[in-house]
Design a protein around this nucleic acid. Structure first.
Length: 461
RNA sequence: GUGGUUUUAGCUCAGUCGGUUAGAGCGCCUGAUUGUGGUUCAGGAGGUCGUGGGUUCGAGCCCCAUAUUCCACCCCA
């Protein structure tokens, strides 16, 4: 039988004990803040009906959905069905009706509609689960990754935008990451499109100005010229997106330029409100910047949109994002429910913290706090007193274990201590029959004879 | 989805023009010294060169396919 070389699918990863500890640390930090702001947890299934997912993320998003092959007698069903399959799409749809969760927001909207009678609005929920995208993997881009979302539905109050911005600020402060929170408003983007060429060109314009950083002014205008934009239209656009100044100054200038767009003016008012409140609150630390080039792909956003980028480190892509969606539940038959939410990208946050070496030292401690080392081969001693010792320690809540492997009788302590030190176990408890116990601190090398009561006291610190 | 890139010992990587038995550092194991880890010394194990084909007298090196890594687009957390 040929031996199979073990492997895991493209874009997925295993996590060892240290990595899990670090990931949990991030998850716990985020969760604590979510709870502090009054959010409640929910969980949704790994897979959703395909109809729930399709059409919510744009054409690009639909292509990236992982589809689950139907089980059972699918083949027979297709062979016996009279309908003809004309293209790949129809074939795909005939053999699959479920897909893996692509994000947490759409399943949440589905959940809200299904449970609308039990929910008290505004409903504030958080959710931390893996999602899957059939993207081509790169650094910081995986096919399976975790999102940590906080959303509020059933309220159009901008107070929630403020809360969510504060959550961003607080979480990243706790984690020690310096970030810039970018903010924009889809209504402003709509206003710009309206003034420049017409609302139907919103997407084209958003994509083009999103590239400003990368390909520069000339690159963007070249691209727009190819898309049949006139020189005056391009000039108007640059006139708007190159506004400089403080946040409030920029918005004042923009107000004049967008005076013919009622929607644009509403967007400006919304941002104005947010900056006014942030600036007058006690929390002045927030690094919040308007960025008119921020567009965000997920097609359901309609109001404020956010994106968080780490200032330090090599990862330039966003580690969090979100925004307001006015009618996501409308897709599932519940109109007039506005929602706003943010998402933390656990895996990218991990990459940033790891690169910048910002994980706390305490995370790398060993599993057990103390290892009991007998001064003779386990077979030669009476086990009962050793096991009593072990359960005594465990009853006191001290993580402990006993060295279970064969030892070199000439050097009975060598292997156990080597084992303890490579596992980062802090103490060795040396047990000899009919003698006092010795406790050795493996960091300092200091060793002393102590009674069990004193040892427990020491280990509980 | 498009274009490129990576893969050789547990890890990080060398490997010339296609030429005998594929190397280094670190790690690992064994032994020596102290009934007790890290230092030192001596010795040792470990590779189907990502996988499958092909060219050649001969392939780690050339060709094709495929997987994987990372990068630029696209898109996104």
């Amino acid at each position: 039988m040929a031996k199979e070389k073990p492997s895991i699918p493209k874009g997925t990863r295993d996590f060892g004990p240290q990595e899990v500890a670090k990931r949990k640390y991030i998850l716990n930090t985020i969760e604590k803040v979510f709870i502090k702001y009054g959010f409640m947890p929910i969980e949704t299934p790994t897979m959703e009906n395909l109809s729930t997912l399709t059409g919510k993320y744009g054409d690009e998003g639909d292509k990236l959905l992982f589809r689950i092959l139907d089980s059972g007698e699918t083949f027979e069903k297709i062979r016996n069905s009279k309908s003809e399959i004309r293209n790949q799409n129809e074939f795909n749809n005939s053999i699959t009706e479920k897909g893996l969760r692509y994000d947490l927001t759409v399943p949440f909207a589905r959940y809200v509609v299904m449970n609308r009678n039990e929910i008290t609005f505004p409903f504030k929920r958080y959710q931390m689960q893996p999602v899957w995208r059939a993207d081509r993997p790169q650094k910081g881009r995986y096919r399976e990754f975790w999102q940590c979302d906080a959303d509020v539905v059933g309220s159009d109050s901008l107070l929630h935008e403020l809360d969510l911005i504060n959550i961003y600020q607080e979480v990243f402060k706790c984690l020690g990451i310096d970030v810039e929170i970018k903010i924009n408003n889809r209504k402003i983007l709509a206003g710009i499109a309206e003034v420049v060429k017409g609302i139907e060109h919103l997407n084209t314009i958003a994509v083009a100005i999103d590239k400003l950083d990368k390909i520069g002014k000339e690159g963007v205008s070249k691209e727009l010229t190819e898309l049949n934009f006139t020189e005056t239209e391009i000039a108007t656009l640059f006139d708007i997106i190159t506004i400089k100044g403080t946040e409030t100054e920029m918005l004042e200038v923009l107000k004049v330029k967008l005076q013919n767009s009622t929607e644009g003016l509403i967007g400006i008012e919304e941002l104005n409100f947010i900056f006014k409140q942030i600036n007058s609150s006690t929390n002045q630390l927030i690094n919040l910047k308007t960025d008119f080039s921020l567009a965000r792909g997920l097609s359901y956003y309609t109001g404020c949109i956010f994106e968080v980028v780490a200032i330090n480190g090599s990862l330039r892509s966003s580690i969090g994002g979100g925004g307001r969606y006015d009618n996501l539940t409308g897709n599932f038959g519940l109109d007039g429910v506005s929602g706003v939410g943010i998402s933390f990208g656990l895996d990218r946050i991990y990459d940033v913290i790891d690169e910048l070496k910002l994980f706390p030292e305490t995370l790398s401690q060993g599993s057990s706090k103390v290892l009991i080392c007998a001064n003779d081969s386990i077979e030669n001693i009476e086990l009962a007193p050793v096991l009593q010792l072990l359960s005594k320690l465990r009853n006191e809540g001290i993580a402990s274990e006993i060295y279970s492997e064969k030892i070199n009788v000439k050097k009975p302590l060598e292997k156990p201590i080597k084992y303890a030190s490579s596992k980062k176990i802090a103490y060795a408890l040396i047990y000899t029959e009919n003698e006092t116990l010795k406790l050795k601190n493996l960091t300092t090398g200091f060793q002393e004879e102590l009674t069990i009561e004193v040892i427990i006291e020491r280990l509980q610190d």
